[in-house]
Design a binder for these strands. Structure first.
Lengths: 240, 240
DNA sequence: AAAATACATATTGTCTACCATCGCGATCCG
DNA sequence: CGGATCGCGATGGTAGACAATATGTATTTT
């Protein structure tokens, strides 16, 4: 009875966010105003307001006279993501450990429970969304209006990247998920203890885990074909 | 002939931003939809879209059924600002030095010219706005969609803080402005040279200048009464 | 007399309907 | 076959009306 009383417009915004995060709406694709307004049972003016808001949050781009485009993901996006993520994540986590309230810690624990349940279910979207939620709560704990905009922007693409590559059948993936979930528990413990330094270090480690996983998908060939190398062919990783 | 062909809605958004940055609209005050829509000659729907957008950019806060509030500034805001600013400024400046294009450098030089002109004119609003513009161009140079949201948010309040305290009559202020302008020139030189490390260091120095100035206004009394000391009274600087 | 409640008013939120404008594709002509 | 023009669909914007909500005032009750 917390989100059930929300207006249709708020529900629309939430569902659009969810759809974009799960890549139900593909990055780079365009959204049709009338189609969406009909789908959510609202008229065009409030829908257009919602789109503006989502644009402000970084979910979509508005092109004058050419409609709303789901934020695209290019290799440049990925590059920039890799540059910004560790700094912001570490800073936010440090602040979260310094400022977290008991109520927020309780919310974080609830979210972590749901995250583990999602991993067990093998549902990629649920896993990604609950992971996003977990880190959003960390952001709320940090309580710094100047860092949160970047954190939110990062989490959008981090979630979408996770959706792109996640595959619950692969063993390595399950292993990574298990480690990530354990690290989340460590986050909770360190934040409860108020150990900002250790929390920031853990954030870096958590990021490294994610980074390695992403990189293993960007350059997958070097791992999957280790057999039958041509004589003299050294194992090269970079794509010419 | 670049901004003269813009729609009324875009002009409205621009003017609202300007008004908020110059504190023409006071932090924490509320905006009236019908009044603004009449003032800018547009109807309520597009104005409401504009407000949503500004909310996304951090200029205002939208309270359900209670209208739009200019982003307030409290001591907590200031505290958070001090925490986030040096990190983001340094990171953005480093990236700007790495990625700047000749066209962007030309724009930066133009902006710097206008900034110096504003200082000479003694107009607080112009000085603040051109300083904001200068750092916005640095942000564009950095070209990282994950850091820019926080940078933009920082620049809003940095500009407003500057407006609050700026006073062209004070000698110390003119001195600080001169140093700031010189540092801007150094930014340009280092970015043209592509020296990312030095640029990042300069960003920290530039921040320190601003920080010291802000702090000197938060605790101004200790400076203004150095005459007529009682015998034996040692010169103490700290408040209380 | 003070506090709580109910009402009146103003503002926000939404809808319908319509017109203007811009992009883009299809068609037509050189 | 290439380029220009026309038409259509989608977005951008306007107007007026109504519903929903919050606030402030006045009334009532204890």
């Amino acid at each position: 009875m917390d989100d059930s009383i929300k207006s249709k417009k708020a529900l629309c915004a939430e569902d659009l966010r969810r759809g974009i995060l799960t890549e139900e709406f593909e990055p780079g694709s365009y959204l049709d105003e009338v189609e969406l307004s009909e789908r959510y049972g609202i008229s065009r003016p409030p829908l257009r307001e919602t789109l503006r808001q989502l644009a402000g949050e970084g979910y979509i781009l508005l092109h004058e006279n050419r409609g709303a485009q789901v934020a695209p993901m290019t290799h440049k996006t990925l590059r920039n993501f890799f540059v910004a993520a560790p700094m912001i994540y570490a800073a936010v986590t440090r602040l979260a450990a310094e400022h977290a309230t008991p109520a927020q810690i309780a919310r974080l624990k609830d979210t972590q429970r749901s995250f583990r349940a999602a991993i067990a279910s093998g549902n990629a979207a649920d896993r990604a969304l609950w992971n996003q939620r977990f880190h959003s709560v960390l952001g709320e704990m940090a309580d710094n209006e100047f860092l949160l905009p970047s954190l939110r922007r990062l989490l959008i693409d981090h979630t979408r990247i996770g959706m792109t590559f996640y595959n619950p059948r692969k063993e390595a993936m399950a292993c990574v998920s298990a480690i990530a979930a354990d690290q989340h528990d460590q986050f909770i413990a360190l934040i409860e203890a108020g150990d900002a330094e250790a929390a920031a270090d853990l954030a870096v480690a958590h990021w490294e885990l994610s980074r390695a996983q992403i990189e293993s998908f960007v350059t997958p060939d070097s791992i999957s074909i280790p057999l039958g190398q041509a004589p003299g062919a050294e194992q090269r990783k970079g794509a010419s």
